[in-house]
Design a protein around this nucleic acid. Sequence first.
DNA 1: ACTCTTAATTTCCGCCGTCAATAAAAGAAG
DNA 2: CTTCTTTTATTGACGGCGGAAATTAAGAGT
Lengths: 392, 392
Amino acid sequence: MSSTRRAETFPANTPAASQIFTTVLSHGPLTRLEVARRAGLSPAAVTKAVRPLIEAGYLVEDADEPARPALGRPANPVRVDGGRALFIGVKVTGDEIIGVLTDLCCRIRVARHAPLPDRDPKGVLASVAELTGELLTAAGDLGVPVLGLGIAVSGDVDRGAGVVRYSPFLEWREVPLAELAAATTGLPVTVDNDVRALTVAEQWFGAGVGLSDFAVVTVGAGIGCGLVVHGRVVAGAQGVAGEIGHVTVDPAGPPCHCGNRGCVEAIAGDAAIVRRIRETTGVEVTDTAAAVELAHQGDTGAREAYARAGEAIGRGIATVANLLGPERVIISGEGLAAHDLFAEQIREAFTAAAFGSAAQCDLQTRPLPFEEWARGAAATAIQSFIRADQQQ
Amino acid sequence: MSSTRRAETFPANTPAASQIFTTVLSHGPLTRLEVARRAGLSPAAVTKAVRPLIEAGYLVEDADEPARPALGRPANPVRVDGGRALFIGVKVTGDEIIGVLTDLCCRIRVARHAPLPDRDPKGVLASVAELTGELLTAAGDLGVPVLGLGIAVSGDVDRGAGVVRYSPFLEWREVPLAELAAATTGLPVTVDNDVRALTVAEQWFGAGVGLSDFAVVTVGAGIGCGLVVHGRVVAGAQGVAGEIGHVTVDPAGPPCHCGNRGCVEAIAGDAAIVRRIRETTGVEVTDTAAAVELAHQGDTGAREAYARAGEAIGRGIATVANLLGPERVIISGEGLAAHDLFAEQIREAFTAAAFGSAAQCDLQTRPLPFEEWARGAAATAIQSFIRADQQQ
DNA sequence: ACTCTTAATTTCCGCCGTCAATAAAAGAAG
DNA sequence: CTTCTTTTATTGACGGCGGAAATTAAGAGT
């Protein structure tokens, strides 16, 4: 496993081919004509681009003909053969790593997690290698090649360079993770920020499909935000963007570890909610689960803490909507376990603080199973595989 | 003038040609090799694209050879011949219209303004036609054709459709201004939101040249913001974006006409500052000029009002920086007359509220002469002329 | 005069994507 | 059963864009 095996490459050199494939990938089975229409190309171009993709096994003609609605030659839709290739996505948190094996359509086949005994690059790399090894074995049993590995890390990540610039959780600076992981696993590696990875998954396989402007807001220990503008994920000039967690909601609010007061995260982050409940109720809740339970029991102080959190989140989302005018905001995150406790407040605060037509922005809530972060990492690997060099 | 004259079109059909021209336009005289490098094209492609542009008179070989630094065949830089074509930009405010005649390099040749007696579409159209007529006469004296008219209006504008969706100041809804103005002036017309127009001017001819991610913040009666992400001006899904003026800075702050409290505009807008000074000092200041003077005289209350305003603006800018990670923020606007009164607070509040590497964002201040808004409108006309159909 | 160096141009070529015509695959009509 | 209609897919010719490499251009130094 120490040698980099000859990586299989995707047979789509031209921008049109890669765009056509992406269209089919995101929009399920489509006839060639429909693909041409959506991609703004001629039918001839689609036919020509599709052939090599079918020959290589990445696309298949959909055998089952679901609807035979109309006159004329029957349509012959094509779809991506998810089983053609597998990808591995790994999310590294402060104390564990989560890995998934997905197919080309980013459907999870196997999910694993393991504790993270050691946070320094060497230790993390060993854990990643072990987990990847397990998943590779599982892939081998399926007889399908694994064509890429995506790693998601919170913090400041330069995806293009494959370098973790700064990760507070891991206490890393300038770690060339892609290079290191490629050397140990022999796979092509993509490294990206975790929220951006999740955003990529939504853009290609989730609620962001077909939208050129949307945002993903994650609610949990921290409050994160991934942005898609002009059809591309926003990375920011310094590699950091979407810091909604430290948008000030109330300058008189509780102090935040960032040094300010009343950041969204200082009100609606897990720790902030728990602290607030302790302070107002005197009950010694220690973690989020206990906080949620207390609120569900009807405790006024706990409910109020969640209401405040919801309001802060709603205001944060309204800020995003005011500034960018996205078509949709997808709210997700572990914090959604408490969804019923603040959904209403989020919506209310958003509506109140959204200015003008920004209020027309569609708010969607999506559950976030714990493997979802790792799935996002896999999505970045799929993306890198499909458009090896070219952008968007 | 009632018939639409045969519009001259720009001889650059291919994306490469238009990109090459834009590069030369923004980056002054460049040798063909340098253009090729910057545009990511081969020198051959540049030579081929440049020739018809020179023949049509849009580009010229720079006669004066400024530096002859090196060995080898002397470089033969090309630049845009600003005098080849003229454009008109018009900014419509609530009570006057401002018009400029610019050359192809967006340098102002003539500036005029006129009161706006009537705000309904018909009246505005008449005023625009009259002002345009004057500028066309001036252009005729120069013997240079006018190839486009840009109109900037505050509010919700659909540039592609040429329709003003909603303008609170003018009390317009769904006015097809581009079509109407084209019919009366006979010129190709571009209509855009005023802040976005200003942003286009900065992107092509100002402090945003060469940057793919930056923001323009305007300080004046209102607080506005134009955003460029991935090299393109953000328009938002509903045609509205950059509403920094109604980002909440302090939920306990003064009420805003939008229905919330403590919006940036409710603290740092002209009217808000004047009101604040009246309330805290008791002095009956009536307008911004008086407020500035009072502050410059050292009045504590007035100075404090400006300090608060600066803090609010700084926080607003930090929010933009946190969310988008722009490379630069350009602060401009009529409010900069009071620049010395709050520049420091803007910077301090920004630094305090910017999270992590967002603080590395470059803050620049630019004066905003009153014709600048109209110049922005002219910039949109130039942009439309250069890339008639294709995007970016 | 010759060489060295860098800029610009020319020529040729590959290749992508469109156009327009054609084939394919049904059901409908007679 | 044949022919027509309708819609999808394919084919082949064509045009044009942009790149690679060779060539020309225009000096400076020796």
